[in-house]
Structure formats: structure tokens, C-alpha cells
Amino acid sequence: MARWPTVVRYAVLFAGALLFLFPFYYMLIGSLQSEPDTSVGGAFPTSGLTLGNYADINSRVDLLGSLVNSGIFTGGVLLCTVVFGVLAGYALARLQFRGRGTLFVIVLLVQVIPFQLLLVPLYVLIVRGYGLADSYLGMILPFAINTTAVFVFRQFFLQLPDDLFAAARLDGAGELRILRSVALPLVRPALLTAVLLTFIGPWNEFLWPFLITKDADMQPLAVSLANYISNVASRAANPFGAILAGACVLAAPAVALFIAFQRHFTSTDLGSGVKG
């Protein structure tokens, strides 16, 4: 092929990449400016950068407390998904039991039905019925076992060779032992990808924790920052600076984790889940 299509391809990709990254750059710059400067030059400041906005947002939103709440919410979901999701995924892939077909159809169905249909009944049940408003349990419950992760775990276990399992069973190993010492070590890299994808959900989730946490001490950072944006921003000296500082704090852990593990975030790992 001619040389110039390659050049064009790179030019388009780099232009697109810069367009995609610019809001992140601008978020960081805006969070460091004491006065919002929306001129073109303001996007490339040479001086006057300050951490004042971080102190400002921290005095209005308890950043550390909110981060801890986000962490507990996310950690709870990850723990339940990894433990119970792997068990269910293994059973669906490798064991023949009554109801397996039905359960698999349910796994597929759950992924099609949007969470929003369950919004009202879950709110009525969890907040009004079980009194779990402003609690970690109430926050975690609707997301506890990520169905997409169950599906992806099943695909991973399905790809392992049959002989492996037959041999382990002949040796008299129980299913839990086979899962722990044969199957899990073989799917570990793929497992990491699934865990990373699961992490994004609760860490970034806004609607559900927003509905059930009215107590500021229980709110994850996404909720307390959103409340700040919609309620109190008008009273701050530099509302955008404070919002962007909060946004950086909220974005940083997910972006840092993603960059650290980005080589696991590949199409081949995920592809095995998507191909079905």
C-alpha cells in the first residue's frame, strides 16, 4: 500500500487522541487556576497555578471521608463479584446440574434489562422496606454480583481444556479444590481484566448511591461532588476551580489504575467474553 494512507491514519488518530485527552488536561489546568481563565491562552498558563481549589473543595466536601465511602462501596462490590461470581461462572461453565440452562438464560436476560426499571421498586424495598438508606449494605446490594462479570468468568472457564478437569476429578479432587488449584491459576490474567472492568462500575456510579444517601457522611465522592455541583457551587469564590479540583480527585484513582493495568485491558482478554 502507498505510504501516505499510513501518514493520514496516524494524523487522524493523533488528532482524535488529543481531542479525547484535552478535557482531562483542561480539568487539571482549571483545578490549578485561582481565577477561571476561559481565554485560549488560559488553557496554557505559565504562572499563577495554585492548590487553593483543592483546599476549597475539601472545606466544603469531606474529600477523604467521601473517598473512603467510595472505596468501601467499590470494595464490597468487587469482593462479592469475585467470590460469588467466580463460583457461579465456574458452575455454569464446568458443572452439569439441574437448572443450569435456566440460570444461563437469566444471566443473559439480566444484562438486557436496564437497571432503571428496578429503580423505583429497589428504592421502595431497600430504603422504605429494609431501612437501609444511608448504609453501605444498601449501597452495595443492587450491584453486589456483577452479572456481566459472571458471564465473562463463565467464558474464561469454558475455554480451558476438558481433559484438565477430567484428570483432576479422576484424582478425586473436589470441585472447590479443582476451581482453586486448577482453574483459577489458569484464568488469573483474564480475571484481573474482569476485576478492573467491575471496579469502574461502582466507583463511577452516581444514580443509586445518590438516591439512598442523604447523610453527607455516607456519600461516595461521585455523589458529594454532584451535590456540590448542583447546590452550593454558586456560593464558592471560584466554583469551577473547586468543581474541577473535586473532579480530579474523583477521576484520579480510576485513571491511575487503568493506566497501571492498561496492558490487561485488551481486546483479546475481553474478546473471549464478547464472542460468546
Binding site: 478535557p23 483542561y26 463511577n204
Partner: peptide, 13 residues
């Protein structure tokens, strides 16, 4: 991978 709430902040700006 970034929270909507965070990027909404910068789009507002």
C-alpha cells in the same frame, strides 16, 4: 473509565 460526574464538571466549564 472516568466517572461521569467528574467529566461533566469539565464539560460544564
Amino acid at each position: 473509565v472516568t466517572a461521569s460526574v467528574a467529566v461533566v464538571g469539565v464539560w460544564l466549564f
